[in-house]
Amino acid sequence: MLNIEHLSVAVGDKQILTDINLHIGYGEVHVLFGPNGTGKSTLISTIMGFENYKVLEGKIVFKGQDITRASCDERARLGIGVMIQRPPTIRGLSLRKMVEICGATSKEAESMAAWMGMTDFLDRSVNEGFSGGELKRSELLQLMAQKPELLLLDEPESGVDVENIALVGRAANYILQHVDCRQDKKCGTSCCGHKADCPKNNPLAESGHSGLIITHLGHILKYVPASHAHILYNGRMTCPKGDPLEVLQCISRMGYEHCAGAACARKG
């Protein structure tokens, strides 16, 4: 679904990412570990196409289409959705309107908000005065409506209290696995869109959706079936085929440097 080849990115005059290669197949969820300031958010912002992230070299191909120079909204319309760490406040635009802009009908907006515990926020300005956890729920609510095929999450657990981590995880999982029956033509099975009734199905395989998730603590892994892990260290990608839980354990025991280097190479 997503192929990143030899990508180097600068912000302003400073090069942040060097020669990044990343291949995310249909139905795969990749986790990205790495110390603060190493360029994880830069990678996600570059995939989304935000301004100020200058591609120096390499290319980004999404569903077979080179989107390296595509604008942010083109990428969104092609099926990429992002949750950034610090979304801005949009004063005077209600969350309800925003969810509808993302693609939900007014009825869907209501039920999705109820599910996310955000009903009381629907008529407030987007993100205005939201707490850390409320911001995450607001973002996920918008993404539920947007129904991206490639979900980019930048630290979905940060600032979220213990009780709400499960909700955030389930919401991410829902977005990844939920087949949009209105749009998706391959949606032919009887349990389409109601994965709970179909225990034998691999829901992710059916939805074909993919994800890239930045996480420090890995709580989200309890809820989302991540298949691959990477460590971004000093602007370079390592561990191309790491198992998410193993890599997480390695990092907590030995630190990023060790795992990104020797431990990773051994797995080869």
């Binding site: 604008s71 942010c72 909204d73 802009i101 993302c102």
Partner: peptide, 14 residues
């Protein structure tokens, strides 16, 4: 500009 970009990432044109 972050506000514009934010909305664009939800599919709106500039």
């Amino acid at each position: 500009p972050e506000e514009i970009q934010y909305l664009m990432a939800r599919g709106m044109s500039e």
